[in-house]
Nucleic acid binder design. Sequence first.
DNA 1: ATCTATTGATAAGGATTCCTTATGGCACTA
DNA 2: TAGTGCCATAAGGAATCCTTATCAATAGAT
Lengths: 307, 307
Amino acid sequence: MALPEFKIAQLRHFVWVAELKGFHTAAEKACRTQPAISLSIRDLENKLSTVLFEKRNAKTSNTELTPFGQYFLPKAKELIAHHDNVAQDMALMSEHKTGHLRLASVPSIACRMLPELLSKFIADVPELHISFYDDNSEAVLRKVEKQQVDIGIASLPHEHEHADITFTPIWEDQLGVVCREDHPFAEVTELHWKELRKQRLIRNGTSRLLEDTEAEPLLSDSQFLISNMLSLIAMLEEGLGITTLPWFAFPKNNSKLRFIPLTTPKIVRHIGIVQLRNKSLSPAAEALASFILKNTNQDKTKDVESE
Amino acid sequence: MALPEFKIAQLRHFVWVAELKGFHTAAEKACRTQPAISLSIRDLENKLSTVLFEKRNAKTSNTELTPFGQYFLPKAKELIAHHDNVAQDMALMSEHKTGHLRLASVPSIACRMLPELLSKFIADVPELHISFYDDNSEAVLRKVEKQQVDIGIASLPHEHEHADITFTPIWEDQLGVVCREDHPFAEVTELHWKELRKQRLIRNGTSRLLEDTEAEPLLSDSQFLISNMLSLIAMLEEGLGITTLPWFAFPKNNSKLRFIPLTTPKIVRHIGIVQLRNKSLSPAAEALASFILKNTNQDKTKDVESE
DNA sequence: ATCTATTGATAAGGATTCCTTATGGCACTA
DNA sequence: TAGTGCCATAAGGAATCCTTATCAATAGAT
């Protein structure tokens, strides 16, 4: 005979009848009528081709298990417990309350936007584990492609258009000039690239944003390249020169430095969420993506213009 | 939301689709049509409120799991395995191929009938564990009452009628006289109790069967009481005297001794299966009981008369 | 490019299962 | 001997499952 296939509800009914010693109380607990429980138990007995409960001709009016039923009871309970564990686990998982979320982001967003976003996001999901990596855009994209990360935050260079990657733009990050507060530029509100030619310009990791723009000549003018951001800031504070930075990379609350938008050319990099095309996100990643989307839509451009 | 309740078949479908990488092959394996599998999976996805399989716009035409599905797969497999373990175990149990059977019997049946019966019974149930006890009828009954034993083989004294015990008679065991082959009785085919009065009668554990019969005076005539059966036989072989024994207690294949039925009074003890009333037997015990019944019905009386 | 074969999704109907209300039978109680 | 509490049974409706038939999309072949 083929192995029977138990239904979880059926097993629950059995356990309840056994433990509450009665069909009526079990029916109550199961939110069913008593005949439903009767049929359920009978079906189970047929599957096992054995009787589970003694016939009630005993003096005690309680329904009692047969030896076979006693043998079955603990196993049924274990099976139910196992099922419920899995069900609960999967429910938590699909409500992204648990699981593992791997995230990579470019440093500027990581410093400026993510701290607040992530702390809000994880506020009500204490069981969710998050692995975070920060790196430049290409590295972030690479991690996404290699599935080392579930979701990435980066800008999308043109050479990546071909890849199996979906890009959802979120932030617009405008390039500007950074100088010390006592620099003549500190007082102006916008700058033309040609105004920079007389200045001592320090290149940095973000300088290649100037490539393919009319301001490209600045790159060859430049004498310095400082790729480490902390060193760069220190040099700028020292008055060694000026540099160009995207707004998000400009350190927040820095009192010694000023950020002046570059208006000609206006260079904007679009930063957004990067994920593998044709691959669904885990519920947690999905939740984070929509959370970011929801919590940034309204101030997408304001962030750039304000302050 | 209440926890979802998975169906085992549904989980199987999921695992098959995942492992065979396709709905059609899974449907084949499940002996269902492809739409059935589609619906089954969709139902599961609704329960989990998540998608399990990537949409098939990928270049590879194989259906692939989502990360969530990958996380679910091993758990689903474990749950199915657990279920099947229990189902298999219970199936074996209900076919009495496994489990534990505790049996007590009076020694005569234990020696004369059970060896053959049990060896036949266990021939095709190698996983069944049997615990066997032999003792006199009262002790057997006590073990049954105390549920130290699932089933007993004994005769039912009158003082036990009241108890919660069911008795199914199987064998009729006739009392007879045992003497050495060179004794004058050895040649006769039946005896009257009065013929024993001139003999040296040895009492034994079974002698109380004579109580409440017209042959009761024999008990007070008797000079010896030997309760150990082996010693008793040795004494008889030595020609020390004669005794009364039920036929089943008379050692099989003993060439020195003879058994002569006592015809007046004809004393018969009924031996049968003893079990607790209102308590079902385990499948193994049930099987043994009906096995014994089936394999002894036809020669119930023949055993007593023959040889 | 068109055709074909294969894949999964969808719709509609029938079959099955599940659960309900109503009722029956049995044992214990008063 | 009627009453009460328990489970079993019967019959009908509701929900579920599974089928056939069809669609839509893709990949490979001609």
